[in-house]
Design a protein around this nucleic acid. Sequence first.
DNA 1: GATGAATGAGGCTTCATTCAT
DNA 2: CATGAATGAAGCCTCATTCAT
Lengths: 177, 177, 177, 177
Amino acid sequence: MELIAERGFHGAPMAEIADKASVAAGTIYRYFENKETLINEIYREMEDEIRSALLKDYPVDLPIRERFLFMVGEIIRYFIRNPLHFRYMEQHYNSPYGILMRRNRLMGKPGREDIVMELFEDGVLSLIMKDLPVVVLLSLAFGPIISVMRDHIIGLVTLDEPMIGRISEACWDAIKR
Amino acid sequence: MELIAERGFHGAPMAEIADKASVAAGTIYRYFENKETLINEIYREMEDEIRSALLKDYPVDLPIRERFLFMVGEIIRYFIRNPLHFRYMEQHYNSPYGILMRRNRLMGKPGREDIVMELFEDGVLSLIMKDLPVVVLLSLAFGPIISVMRDHIIGLVTLDEPMIGRISEACWDAIKR
Amino acid sequence: MELIAERGFHGAPMAEIADKASVAAGTIYRYFENKETLINEIYREMEDEIRSALLKDYPVDLPIRERFLFMVGEIIRYFIRNPLHFRYMEQHYNSPYGILMRRNRLMGKPGREDIVMELFEDGVLSLIMKDLPVVVLLSLAFGPIISVMRDHIIGLVTLDEPMIGRISEACWDAIKR
Amino acid sequence: MELIAERGFHGAPMAEIADKASVAAGTIYRYFENKETLINEIYREMEDEIRSALLKDYPVDLPIRERFLFMVGEIIRYFIRNPLHFRYMEQHYNSPYGILMRRNRLMGKPGREDIVMELFEDGVLSLIMKDLPVVVLLSLAFGPIISVMRDHIIGLVTLDEPMIGRISEACWDAIKR
DNA sequence: GATGAATGAGGCTTCATTCAT
DNA sequence: CATGAATGAAGCCTCATTCAT
């Protein structure tokens, strides 16, 4: 994970990955069919971890706005704690496999229920969020997060708690009706 | 450009680039030191083109809000017209060189004067935009644009004029005080 | 055996061989020094089986011609029943080890007494077969069998009983004086 | 060719082939898509050469028997001159690609006109050869040649002119009515 | 005696870059 | 100045064999 997060798919040779994992090159192939599978499986594991982090203490009963602010804050904090996870996911986001997954999630294919999607669908139905397609609302909410995280990681801003709060509020302004 | 936009840095062999440009492989090296340089110079050229597109008809005298809406709209339209430019820039954005450029622009290093930076600095000083670092405001404004463009290109949304308008407004909501 | 017959020496990984034999990969090495040994021992076993098939009902007392026709017929039938044995032996035939064995058999080294060799030596001595080296007679007799079996297996001819009879006769024509 | 003839497909690494050809490994791939293609193209070239050798001085107007004896003699002599060609073709014969080619040739698919096929078809129609499928006649005629060539190459017989003559005659005995 | 995870050498192929023509 | 064949390092992956359990 580290190697790929830091140097990207093409900058992380299997030999080096094996080295870092203190195994021989061939050993990897007992656990992953090939490099691509390895990458995708790391991704899936990471996604689960993030989901858990989000679910823990998720205030199901608070109003939509509060739930949204909690969620955005948690995501930012998670990635501040795990900057490599951010880099990794970012890389994966635009890979063919990442695109496929996103498309599946949006187009019906339910997968597991998804508190994020749920929150936005609720928001639209209850006329609290703007009357825009959910995909667009997702972009309005998370586009800035991604961008701001990136800048945090390369040291262009520092995200402390007050800043996180104000950014979360700004994102809310973007989607609220 | 096309090749790299479509298939990425590593998916675009020099031989094929040369082919598409109807020159021999060796010829490229008389004009660009190496692949990286080629990539960066294409980037620079593209950036200039976008700047020009933005500057044309830029309503210097309208209020900040109107200038912002114009700018965001133009950028979206530009990328809808040139989806490959979007893909190209996106790839470049996180490359070591892309990061370096962004850092230079934000940290003093004036480069050329920049109407985007100017707009945001104005916005903050005139208390019309939120009191946040310019970097953050930039993320709030353009993060969603990037995200929404991505989805447009892969066919997850369709950005028509009304949609562009409503997204621009939403971005304004995020940054306005 | 099956795996090697079907996919060749290089197409049959030890791991898969072990799998098919329902043992662990390492176990094979308690019974065979290495892959080559395994291959050769399978060969030897198979050869014995063929010899037995030939010996059963072998009409020792009939004239040479009849014995020859019986033998050729039996061999063809054996391989029709066991096409994988044919494929296996064919592969082995040109391997270094196969060549070595053939050489030993022909050059004095008696090995066990061999009814095939015996038949041909008889044939020559009794002036019933052509006055050619036994090796050559063997080629005249069995070369076509190998070739025709190959075609049968890949479906280019179908060897039914009448056809087997006529082919055997033709082989006899080739060697008889 | 030499390497593959001597050591087989799997015993001839591309690196060594390149070495022997005094080029770098990568260079091969400018001329052949991959190893398989290389093997097949060598084969095709070789086949053409053999065909030419056969066609030269081919006595079109002599009776079938004489044409057959000429042909068999020429083939044997060709392979005695080019033992590696023999080994190469033998290897190719049972490869998937070789089988495919043979099947195509026999099943209608005319390819170029083929003096061998022609000779045998003539032989059957004129009631000079046995009334057997052409594939079988081919096996009866060439099976021994292959076998005897093999033994010649590994030194089990020596094929001098008289021997060639007598073997050719024996093959004729096998197919003639 | 059996297991099967681990090993790592070795195979095929790609591709940025060079350089003789 | 352009060409494009040649280069060879480097990448991914396979698989015979070993050895701790």
